[in-house]
Design a protein around this nucleic acid. Structure first.
Lengths: 134, 134
DNA sequence: CAGGATCCTCCACGATACTG
DNA sequence: CAGTATCGTGGAGGATCCTG
């Protein structure tokens, strides 16, 4: 508990920012759980239905820069790119798993509330009537 | 590991959304660590320097709706409002603590990277020259 | 197959001013 | 003291088209 400070540049906040990128955690979790820590780009993408191509690539790039995974390019034609968890990535997956499990363990409490609890409406909430005109 | 699915409405994603709201985790952590789980609005706000008034209040309201804390209003003049962790809030704090500690434990690895690792530039990175005019 | 480049939407978050 | 109202903005995230 030491000095529970949330200074702008502290490590814990960095972690929160990682969690805030929407797909990072899910990519890591999936890469680990369904691909044993390594997978080709396409295969990984296919196991994450909701992610747009742009965000998928962009997030992976940021994760590489962030030291969470490595990128191996096989310069064949067509190219084969493989992503692999780094040690840090592995450790982070451990944390993601905790979050994942916490969610499952508290699913009842979370479901007992209004459909929206946080503040973020994933915009899929509204897409139902996005066909207003025609 | 059961069925590692990240369906749109699953509980784990709800949790990620909570983490995505930027201040929720910090408010909970601070409310617990520095105020023993209960504090008046002003006091709590004062222990979170970076939060704007608007987001502070708004986040608290969403957290109340989300069942993470309770709001007690003492209708004196001026009013005295106290926020208190709910059982769910307490449990969530446990998770936040894990994230917090993970960050401290991996601070070296996180710092070893470029100043930006995720993708989100908290825009405070730029505020340095926000005094451009006068 | 992998991903770059563009354009666009929307909402999280902030600053400021006001109320009871 | 606690909160609401309003306005403005950046940038996360998506769709679509193009390249090697």
């Amino acid at each position: 508990m030491q000095d529970d400070d949330w200074r702008e540049d502290c490590a814990p906040r960095r972690v929160l920012e990682i969690f805030a990128t929407k797909w990072t955690s899910m990519i890591l979790h999936t890469l680990n759980a369904r691909h044993k820590g390594a997978a080709r780009s396409g295969a990984l993408h296919r196991s994450l239905p909701g992610v747009s191509k742009k965000m998928f690539v962009q997030t992976l790039r940021d994760m590489e820069t962030g030291g969470l995974l490595d990128r191996h390019i096989d310069s064949t034609v067509p190219p084969a790119v493989t992503y692999r968890l780094t040690p840090l990535g592995h450790r982070f997956v451990g944390l993601v798993d905790l979050v994942y499990d916490w969610g499952r363990d508290n699913a009842d409490a979370l479901d007992a509330l209004q459909p929206r609890e946080g503040a973020r409406r994933t915009r899929s909430t509204v897409l139902s009537q996005s066909e207003h005109d025609a």
